[in-house]
Amino acid sequence: ENVVSAPMPGKVLRVLVRVGDRVRVGQGLLVLEAMKMENEIPSPRDGVVKRILVKEGEIVDTGQPKIELG
């Protein structure tokens, strides 16, 4: 899985990584606000952040790609 998608609709509060960052499985990639709760979205695997496809403040839909890992 190279693309991390939104598990639920919500607002991107914070992006916790930058392009080029090495990430580990379970590491937080971003914080999504859904139903007035903050949810940290974890990396599904070890890898390197290739692209960030969302911006802080953006509203995302379920299944929308957010971060691409290499």
Rank of each mutant, 00 (worst) to 15 (best):
K36N: 15
P7W: 10
D21A: 06
Q64S: 08
Q64H: 09
V48Q: 07
K50A: 10
E68V: 15
G47M: 03
G20E: 04
G26V: 04
V4E: 03
M37R: 13
V17T: 03
Q27K: 04
V23I: 08
R45F: 13
E33R: 08
V54K: 00
E1R: 13
V15F: 10
G28H: 08
L69A: 03
R22W: 14
R51P: 03
G57I: 04
M35R: 11
Q64T: 11
L29V: 07
I52V: 10
V49G: 01
E40C: 15
L32R: 00
P44S: 05
L69V: 08
K50P: 01
E1P: 13
A34N: 12
K11Q: 07
V31D: 00
D21M: 08
V12T: 02
I67S: 02
T62C: 12
P42V: 14
E58Q: 13
G70P: 02
I59E: 11
E68W: 13
K55L: 10
P7Q: 12
M37K: 12
R45D: 04
A6W: 07
N2C: 15
V4Y: 04
P65E: 06
V19H: 04
I52N: 01
E38A: 10
V60T: 11
K50Y: 11
E38S: 09
E56V: 14
E40R: 09
K11I: 11
E1K: 13
I67T: 02
V49I: 12
I59R: 11
K50W: 11
T62N: 08
L30T: 03
G28T: 15
G47Y: 02
P9G: 13
R45M: 14
T62Q: 13
P7N: 12
E1Y: 14
T62L: 12
L13K: 10
G20W: 05
V15C: 06
A34D: 06
G57Q: 06
R18E: 11
G70M: 14
K50Q: 10
M37Y: 08
V23C: 06
G70S: 13
L30F: 14
D46K: 06
K55A: 11
E40G: 04
R14Q: 07
P44F: 07
K36Y: 12
V15D: 02
A6M: 12
I41V: 09
E40D: 06
L30H: 00
L13T: 08
G63W: 09
N39V: 15
L30V: 11
I67P: 01
M8D: 02
N2W: 15
V54I: 10
M37E: 11
V3Q: 07
L16E: 02
I41R: 00
E1Q: 13
P42L: 14
R51A: 12
L69T: 02
R24S: 11
